[in-house]
């Protein structure tokens, strides 16, 4: 079934206490290669109908009006994932293998990618 992915991030200029806490934990692990962490949200809207421009346009509006709050967040992306019915994360259905995060996000988006802000 088609899945429309919406990604939302806290505004760049705002403090992200969650990201800050994770950055602190990374530092305590001895990781010094990362200077910052920010945490956002990924929504997966599943539909059993056709995904056309009208639907994507409606999702874009819902993303801006309801899934995010423009005072504190930006909609980063609205795109279709696995448009041909393939599962999300089609590189491997096995999420338990714990190996490298190959193909994460990249290479799967087939349809339009719109950025709502930034």
């Amino acid at each position: 079934m088609p899945t429309i992915v919406v990604e939302v991030m806290p505004k760049a200029e705002l403090l992200d206490p969650q990201g800050k806490a994770v950055a602190g934990a990374l530092a305590r692990l001895g990781e010094s290669r990362f200077t910052g962490v920010r945490i956002g949200k990924r929504f997966e809207l599943v539909t059993d109908g056709p995904v056309d421009d009208a639907l994507l346009s409606d999702v874009q509006k819902l993303a801006e009006d309801m899934l995010s709050n423009s005072v504190i967040e930006d909609v980063i992306s609205v795109h279709v994932d696995g448009g041909d019915g393939s599962a999300v994360g089609s590189s491997s259905g096995d999420s338990s293998s714990g190996d490298a995060p190959a193909g994460e996000l990249t290479g799967q988006a087939e349809a339009s990618t719109q950025t709502g802000a930034r």
Partner: peptide
């Protein structure tokens, strides 16, 4: 604020 009856928003406490 979410209903837009008051401006601005509220985010996680800075102290975490």
């Amino acid at each position: 604020t979410e209903a837009h009856l008051l401006p601005g928003g509220l985010i996680r406490n800075e102290v975490g």
